[in-house]
Design a protein around this nucleic acid. Structure first.
Lengths: 202, 202
DNA sequence: GTCTATATCCAGATAGAC
DNA sequence: GTCTATCTGGATATAGAC
C-alpha cells in the first residue's frame, strides 16, 4: 500500500510537469504564434533546460501532437455539453454557437486543430481520428432538423468556417462576425424550407 | 539615342532577372509551402548563389512583399475583367465566381494574400492598401443589387471565405465547395428579399 | 529527471574580390 | 551584379555526468 502510494505520487508529479510544459507551450504559442515556439523557450518558461523536455516528449512534434489532443478533448467536452434546444433547430443552433465560441475564445487552439499552422507537423492518425469523431455530431444534429445530404452539411460548414476565420483574422477581440451566426442560420434554414416547399408543390 | 537604348536594355534585363527570381520563388512555394522557401533554394533555381539575390531584393521579406504585390495585381486585373451581367445580381455573381476561381486556382497565392502564412512577414502598408482597393469593388457590386449595410457585406464575405478556405484545405484539386457558390448566392439573395418584403408589409 | 556540453544542421545577411 | 568566404545566430536533438 505504501509503495503503491509512492508510485502514484511520482506519476502524479510527472503528469503535473507534463501539464506545466504544455501550458507553457500554449502560452508562448498565443503570444508568438504556434510555429514560432522553440523548445528552449518552453523549457525556460517552466524553469528547465531544453534537453530535459525529451524526458517528457519524444520530439517537438510529439509535443504539438499532445497539444492537438488537448484541443480536441476540450472541443469534444464542450460540444457534448451543448444544450438540447426545444426543437432540433434550436439544438443545432446551440451546437454551432458553441463551436464558434470555442474557436474564437482561443484562436491559436482553433488554428492548431483546424488549419495547418506548423510546417512539418501533422497530427498522428489516432489523434486525428479523435478530431473527426468530435465533429461528427454536427451531421446528426443537422439531420435531426430534417435537412439531409452532403451538400447541405458542406454549405453549413462553409458558413460556419467563414464566420470563424474572418472573426479570428480580422477582429479577434470583437464580435463583428460571430454576431452574424443567428442570422446566418435563419438564412440557411429558410433556404431549405423553400427547397422543401418547392418539392411539395410539384 | 543609342545610350538611351542601352540603358533600356540593361533595365529590361534586370527586370527579367527579377521576374525569374519571383517565378522560381512561387514555384518553390507551391511545392514546399510559402514559409519553407529559402534564399539558397530560390537562387539555385535560377542558377545563382544566395547573396546575389540581395542585388534584387533588400531582404527575404522584401521578396515576399514583391510576391504579395504580384498576387494583388493579378487579382485586381481579374476582378476588373469580370463580366457585367444582365442585371446587378448577375454581375455580383460573376464577381464572386471570379474571386473564388482565382483563389482556388493557386492556393498558395491565396494564402499569401489573405492569410498570414509566413511568420514575421507582413505586407508593407502600400502593398496592403493595394489589396484593400482590389477588394473594394465588391461593396459597390453588392450595393447595386439593392442590398446595403455592413452586415450584409460581412455575411457575404463569410460565405465566400468559408467556401474558398474549405475548398483549398480539403479538396484542392476538386470542386466540392466551389460548386456550392451559386446555391449559396441564391440563399443569400433570398434572405434579403424576405427582409425587404417584411419591411414593405409593415 | 535534470543538468552541461556538444553535435549537426541550416538559416539570413554581409564583406570584399573580380 | 555575380561570386566565394564568412559572420551570426538559432534550431532540434543526443551523450553522458550527477
Amino acid at each position: 500500500m505504501l509503495a503503491r502510494t509512492a508510485v502514484d505520487t511520482r506519476s502524479a508529479r510527472r503528469d503535473a510537469t507534463r501539464a506545466g510544459i504544455l501550458e507553457a507551450a500554449w502560452d508562448l504559442a498565443r503570444r508568438h504564434g504556434l510555429a514560432a515556439i522553440t523548445l528552449r523557450e518552453v523549457a525556460g518558461a517552466v524553469g528547465m533546460r531544453a534537453p530535459s523536455l525529451y524526458k517528457h516528449f519524444a520530439s517537438k512534434n510529439a509535443m504539438y501532437d499532445a497539444m492537438y489532443a488537448q484541443a480536441v478533448e476540450q472541443l469534444s467536452a464542450r460540444l457534448s455539453r451543448r444544450r438540447q434546444g426545444r426543437d432540433p433547430r434550436a439544438t443545432l443552433r446551440n451546437r454551432v454557437r458553441a463551436f464558434v465560441a470555442f474557436c474564437v475564445e482561443d484562436p491559436v487552439r482553433y488554428q492548431l486543430m483546424l488549419e495547418r499552422p506548423v510546417p512539418g507537423f501533422e497530427p498522428t492518425p489516432e489523434t486525428y481520428r479523435m478530431a473527426l469523431a468530435a465533429l461528427s455530431g454536427t451531421r446528426t444534429d443537422l439531420e435531426a432538423t430534417g435537412i439531409t445530404g452532403a451538400r447541405a452539411l458542406d454549405l453549413m460548414r462553409a458558413i460556419t468556417t467563414g464566420i470563424v476565420s474572418l472573426q479570428v483574422a480580422n477582429d479577434p477581440a470583437g464580435t463583428r462576425w460571430t454576431r452574424l451566426v443567428d442570422e446566418a442560420l435563419d438564412m440557411f434554414f429558410a433556404h431549405y424550407e423553400r427547397a422543401a416547399s418547392r418539392r411539395v408543390r410539384r
